Lab assay of single mutants.
Amino acid sequence: AMEMGLACVVCRQMMVASGNQLVECQECHNLYHRDCHKPQVTDKEANDPRLVWYCARCT
């Protein structure tokens, strides 16, 4: 999947907007926009540098 680069696995886009940054699952290393992931990634989750985030598939 490395050839995908830094794109969201849901929408396949790399564009990021304020409040909709890409977050990386620490287990599978897929990237998700906060708005694309279900459930939506919260501000607290996205902005906490100590948080280890896992996508819905890996939790």
Rank of each mutant, 00 (worst) to 15 (best):
L22R: 06
Q13G: 05
V16I: 08
V10Q: 05
M2T: 15
R34E: 11
V41W: 03
T42I: 03
E24Y: 02
C36I: 01
L6K: 15
C8H: 00
V41A: 04
M14A: 14
V9N: 04
C25D: 01
A46W: 09
A1S: 14
A56F: 03
M2D: 05
Q21S: 13
D43A: 09
M15S: 15
C8I: 00
L22F: 13
Q13I: 06
K38Q: 11
C36P: 02
M2H: 06
Q21L: 09
C8R: 01
Q40W: 07
L51T: 14
Q21F: 08
V16K: 13
D43I: 08
C8G: 00
C58A: 00
V23A: 05
T59D: 08
V16W: 06
H33N: 02
R12M: 08
L6P: 10
W53F: 10
W53Y: 03
G19F: 02
P49H: 06
P39T: 08
Q40D: 09
Y32Q: 03
T42L: 06
E45A: 08
Q21D: 11
C8T: 01
E45H: 06
C58L: 01
Y54S: 14
N30G: 13
H37K: 02
P49I: 12
R34Y: 14
N47T: 08
Y32K: 02
V52M: 10
R12K: 14
R12E: 12
V9C: 14
A46M: 04
T42W: 05
E45R: 04
L51M: 09
D35K: 08
A46I: 08
H29S: 07
C8M: 00
C25F: 00
V41M: 07
R12W: 02
V16A: 14
Q40Y: 03
C8F: 00
Q13S: 10
V16R: 13
G19E: 14
Q40R: 10
K38E: 12
V41Q: 04
M2Q: 09
P39C: 14
A7I: 12
M4E: 09
A1F: 05
A7T: 13
E3M: 04
P49Q: 09
Y54P: 02
V52D: 13
W53D: 07
L31N: 13
Y54Q: 13
V10S: 02
C36T: 02
H33S: 01
Q13C: 06
R34W: 15
K38S: 13
Q13P: 02
C28W: 00
L6F: 08
R50I: 04
L22P: 07
H37Y: 04
E24T: 05
P49M: 09
C58N: 00
V9S: 07
Y54I: 07
S18Y: 05
R57Q: 10
A46R: 08
A56M: 11
T42Q: 09
E24D: 07
